[in-house]
């Protein structure tokens, strides 16, 4: 089965690293990738965000086929890297660094 829906083949190289299951994992992945990884992901995803939303509007949010779920997870990851790229211009908020003590112990549904 395809990893992503038709028309999103350009995003395939990102699925393995960036299609994470929940908010905490996406937060971790952002810091694991470093600023170069974050920037590369952002540069590939940001121009596709509205296309991704248009596609995901056609599938039920609570019950997505797997290739749509991967696309959804990539879109969710874009929300996280946006903090680094569009807010801080660096990976973490100025003067801070990845802090494993900060735990998202309850996230939204669907994850």
């Amino acid at each position: 089965m395809a990893l992503l829906p038709d028309g999103f083949a350009d995003l395939l190289p990102f699925v393995a690293q960036w299609a994470k299951d929940d908010v905490q994992e996406r937060h971790r992945q952002r810091f694991a990738a470093g600023m170069d990884g974050v920037q590369a992901f952002y540069d590939a995803l940001a121009p596709r965000a509205t296309d991704m939303m248009a596609y995901l509007d056609t599938v039920p949010l609570d019950d997505m086929p797997e290739e749509a779920a991967n696309l959804y997870k990539l879109l969710m990851a874009l929300a996280h890297v946006t903090l680094s790229v569009e807010h801080h211009g660096e990976l973490a908020p100025p003067g801070t660094a990845f802090n494993p003590a900060v735990q998202i112990v309850r996230g939204p549904a669907p994850a």
């Binding site: 908010v23 937060h27 929300a79 996280h80 946006t82 903090l83 807010h87 973490a92 908020p93 801070t96």
Partner: peptide, 10 residues
Amino acid sequence: MAWFVDVIYE
């Protein structure tokens, strides 16, 4: 959520 977490970092 990503934004809240970063504000909390700060």
